[in-house]
Amino acid sequence: MSDTKKFLYINRKAPYGTIYAWESLEVVLIGAAFEQDVSLAFMDDGVYQLMKGQDTSAIGMKNFSPTYAALGDYEITKIFVEKESLEERGLTLDDLQHLVWEDEDEDWAEKDSIRLVSRAELGDVMAEQDVLFNF
């Protein structure tokens, strides 16, 4: 399949303060239909997108954080979270949503989607891609 490319969507902005996070997620969902080899990366303020317990009821905006939990259903199973960005912000993986996907080849076993990587490792992941999407 020479027309399958490796796509990495790089998320570096916090949600709600600006629309970038939400509109990037819209591209990811639409893009899933194109059957490319898709990964997502969250670094810098982008890690805030995955925070647990988001409640937007008092700011009049749609809470789109549940959508991340549905990414597994779109066959998006590789979600890279950068370790340094979490640590700088006083966060750990426990502060983030637990994202999983079901592996059809292993009797629908539930597997973690999030892979914690260092900045250097994320640089290697970026280097392996064909196309980098930035928002």
Binding site: F7, E26, V27, G31, V131, N134
Partner: peptide
């Protein structure tokens, strides 16, 4: 047109260059 046009651009082109 739809967002699929951006994804298709990524598939069909040699380079995607983003300005923002």
């Amino acid at each position: 047109s739809g967002l699929g046009q951006l994804v298709e651009g990524g598939i069909q082109s040699d380079r995607l260059v983003v300005f923002g």
